[in-house]
Amino acid sequence: MSQPIIDRLVTALGTILLGKDGQIRLALACLLSRGHLLLEDLPGMGKTTLSHALAKVLGLEYQRIQFTSDLLPADIIGTTLFNPGQSQFEFRKGPVFSEVLLADEINRATPKTQGALLEAMEERQVTVEGHSYPLPHQFFVIATQNPVTQMGTFPLPESQLDRFLMRISLGYPDPKVERALLKGKNPRDELEFLQPAVSKTELDALQKKVSTVHVSDALLDYVQRILAHTRESSQFVVGLSPRAGMALVKSARAFALVSGREHVIPEDVQAVLGPVAEHRLSGSRDVTGHEGERLVDHVLKHVPVIGSR
């Protein structure tokens, strides 16, 4: 019953982002488990397109902020304005008060501005001058980021990366798709015509459904083996935290749902492990900050799927 909706979503997104079925499912899984998404890739790989498409397909009202180094926190969360006419202050809500916030190139803003956004993400409310303003019921941040090796950026600190449920890279398109692009097919054009594939109630129901996806003891054993491995092996400087473990199970549930299953199998965990764990891990020989991928490969290769605890 949830499957047709998911199929609809995947198909709709597939028309925009060609040949990126895996990433689309991951992104959907991320949003269905109500997690924030970080898209990380070089410029021009379709990050922005995917984020826009996601918001549109889910039928959510969205706002976009292009992060720059002169962006101030108030530009995101809103400002208290002095109304000279009435001689009083009023709070004008910033772009953060939307259902989907597309934060383009989040690593271009100063840490202060980043901090303001990440705080809102964590607490799902904004506090200005002592007043708390709750954010909408559906609230996602889809941030895009250029890899840290790029010049003139402020990489997100590890503690803040943790706020994103998943980090996804899109990667280069495969040759067939690229050829279509080169022929002149512009996904952004089709973005205009993209219609919501799901109603608000359906989305709610889907998100609720995620928590009912069955997780067996055998699967939890596997997850615990993974966690233990990251903590015990000397490849890792810091192991995965309990929060990361929870995120892993949650994402695996959503991914199983997106894959049309009502129980989680090890492949679901393996599929989401990279996006969930890469940005939370750092290796012992990690000087560049880009060891996550290698470490996740290590885990996937070495942690036995079948076995005792």
């Binding site: 015990e232 092996s233 400087v237």
Partner: peptide, 13 residues
């Protein structure tokens, strides 16, 4: 027998 079957894993340093 007391030693055989014992596994040693290198951990972190």
């Amino acid at each position: 027998s007391n030693l055989s079957g014992l596994m040693i894993d290198a951990g972190t340093t």
